[in-house]
Design a protein around this nucleic acid. Sequence first.
DNA 1: TAGATTGTTAATCGATTAACAATC
DNA 2: TAGATTGTTAATCGATTAACAATC
Lengths: 211, 211
Amino acid sequence: MSEKQVPLVVIKRLPRYYRYLGELLRNNITRISSTELSEKMGVTASQIRQDLNYFGGFGQQGYGYNVEMLYNRITSILGLDRGHKTVIIGAGNLGRALANYGGFANRGYNIVGLFDVDPALKGTFIADAPVMMYDELKSFVEKEKPDIAILSVPKNSVRKVADDMVKMGIKAFLNFAYVDLEVPDDVVVENVHLSDSMMTLSYRMASKAGE
Amino acid sequence: MSEKQVPLVVIKRLPRYYRYLGELLRNNITRISSTELSEKMGVTASQIRQDLNYFGGFGQQGYGYNVEMLYNRITSILGLDRGHKTVIIGAGNLGRALANYGGFANRGYNIVGLFDVDPALKGTFIADAPVMMYDELKSFVEKEKPDIAILSVPKNSVRKVADDMVKMGIKAFLNFAYVDLEVPDDVVVENVHLSDSMMTLSYRMASKAGE
DNA sequence: TAGATTGTTAATCGATTAACAATC
DNA sequence: TAGATTGTTAATCGATTAACAATC
């Protein structure tokens, strides 16, 4: 892709467009203008048109956008139609919850296995996915070639796990541990720092109350 | 607070400063300059100084910042020293995982109860917190006055739950359901949309691989 | 004091919004 | 065609970075 690089802020908005368009589609709405969509989503129509135009002209002057076509295009841009083999490292409470999370499987993120160090879990299944031991991970990755690793391990082991997996060739991590990972340039990390969200939340709550 | 409003981008960076300062503190580092901190954190020194100055001059020319003092100030700004009674609505896999999540309790987010509609859970405990029935929530809120509600209920019930709880006087929600909540102006919401993070992750992975 | 580093103002950069010609 | 609405350029706004006087 030698296209001009799309800003990260724009990319982060795509899932939200995807979500709203999916809703419109389920309500059998076939066309929508940027103005109508902007009212529903609480953003400007200008932003919607700018954002979509990073990926090409999906609309039609005088008409607006075809909901289904736009939905399909965004699905494809986000790669949701391609399927992604995903492993979860750490089968504790959080790992189990994530394996059971419906929002992943039906967008093509297939959990193909969980890994833990607790021998009691060996051979068990969570949401149809087998739980294996961490020392089996390397050969599993070689054989199955998963794309994405979800890291729900304790923070004192996450750096080692990430390093190991980078060596195995994994290029994408969803990290739940309360640590910033350092990875090579060709590897991407999304952090879900739950404590950070709580802190931002309580700060904003307090500052509203104090006004 | 009639101070000038601090931009949201700055507030969202505070937890990260808090985290790095905590680490320095545990390593017995007593002072740090904005330049040194900027190298560790991978941001500019200018940004650090600008950010901190929204809250007052915490440094000293020629010296830098006292780590413990700065840590304590940020702790206080974020309200982590005040304690927040928190309830979790939805005691499914995710709710249980969150109740067990250590990162909340030791930053003052005390889970005082979970609520669900499954009668089988009534009277049980998760991580020392009692599980109660959703119809007990109103009287519980009146008595205990929690500050924060974590919403880990299915997406088709989250709007009703949020509406109910706004009426009960709850001002802050951490929402895990895949829906944007509409709340009054004096109520704050932080969304944790796990699918969105996965989508952004896989998009970025694909666009790196394609270059 | 001299050196270091902040706090803060000014310059730059990037993202958002507005405007409108192109066109369905 | 006339009306509507996009795609895109230009203007504005806000956030980041640079620079440096203040000062410990």
